[in-house]
């Protein structure tokens, strides 16, 4: 850093300040949540908050004893993984075709669908699934969540596909690839970073989306995030247990991000063309 030009110094300082600020906004509530989950109930709401305390697993024990927490977690996993997979399976080819043909209006339609508030879909979805008697099934949740995951996948992947030099596709065609094979053998391996990013985002959005689950699931298929709303307001709220639940809910997306980040290398298309 010492070899930076003098004029860059103020930029560096600004950079550091912004990083610290962003860190505070993100990290303080997270740390507070995690810390609270290990506190005794009375400490959680104590003011001023206790910094030094004896950690306890009481909240976690209470959580697993009073709720079918693992079952909800399992539901969440099923719905989230399936809807993420569905989003990728539908979204990746769609993004490829949108990028190749430069026809993006269908992608924009999906984006508009994504932007619209979920309540807009809720009623039609509900009526439809009611008619085919699918309320409370995993499929009703997986399909509705794909409405959230697919546009994410499409819009994350389009710029990745756009980055692949056109002549690479053309070379593949000349080499005898059908469009499907160009997608499978050439385009897809070149956007693994995009797949990783879109998978994480889709996973997180689906994992955290509660509205559809609230209405379309039953007590058997309820997802974690929907179930956690039951923890609030049942008489007196058990803040400690709620913090423990929140911590556990936050864990899978975090783990996923760590696992997937090794695919987040850029520059994969380097060397294709002249330079």
């Amino acid at each position: 850093m010492s070899d930076a030009a003098p004029s860059d110094r103020s930029l560096q300082i600004l950079n550091t300040v912004l990083l610290v600020l962003a860190g505070c906004v993100v990290m303080v509530p997270t740390l507070w949540m995690v810390a609270s989950s290990f506190k005794q109930s009375f400490e959680v709401t104590a003011y001023p908050p206790t910094i030094i305390f004896t950690p306890t697993l009481d909240n976690y024990v209470a959580l697993s004893e009073t709720t079918p927490f693992l079952h909800y977690a399992f539901n969440s996993m099923i719905v989230t993984m399936a809807s993420t997979a569905l989003g990728l399976i539908l979204g990746a080819p769609a993004a490829f075709v949108a990028s190749w043909t430069r026809i993006t209006w269908p992608a924009i339609v999906t984006l508009v669908a994504r932007m619209a508030p979920g309540t807009l879909f809720l009623l039609p979805w509900y009526v439809m699934f009611r008619q085919v008697d699918m309320i409370g099934s995993y499929w009703s949740l997986i399909l509705t969540h794909a409405v959230i995951t697919m546009p994410i996948v499409i819009w994350v992947l389009i710029p990745f596909f756009d980055n692949i030099p056109r002549s690479v596709y053309e070379a593949a065609q000349v080499d005898g690839c059908s469009p499907a094979r160009v997608f499978w053998r050439i385009a897809l391996p070149l956007v693994t970073a995009g797949l990783a990013v879109s998978a994480i985002l889709a996973f997180v959005f689906s994992w955290n989306y509660f509205l559809f689950a609230l209405v379309l699931s039953n007590s058997d298929t309820k997802t974690l995030i929907a179930a956690s709303f039951n923890f609030i307001g049942e008489g007196s709220t058990n803040w400690g247990a709620l913090m423990a639940a929140a911590t556990l809910i936050a864990l899978p997306p975090l783990i996923l991000a760590v696992i997937v980040q090794r695919w987040l290398i850029s520059g994969l298309t380097l060397g294709a063309v002249k330079g």
């Binding site: 030099p165 002549s167 070379a171 000349v174 060397g271 294709a272 063309v273």
Partner: peptide, 20 residues
């Protein structure tokens, strides 16, 4: 007839190698 079925080999001006 699409490129894939013309049975032609081509060297592109900008090479167009498969980077992966």
């Amino acid at each position: 007839v699409p490129a894939a079925r013309r049975d032609i080999a081509m060297v592109f001006q900008d090479y167009a190698l498969y980077p992966h």
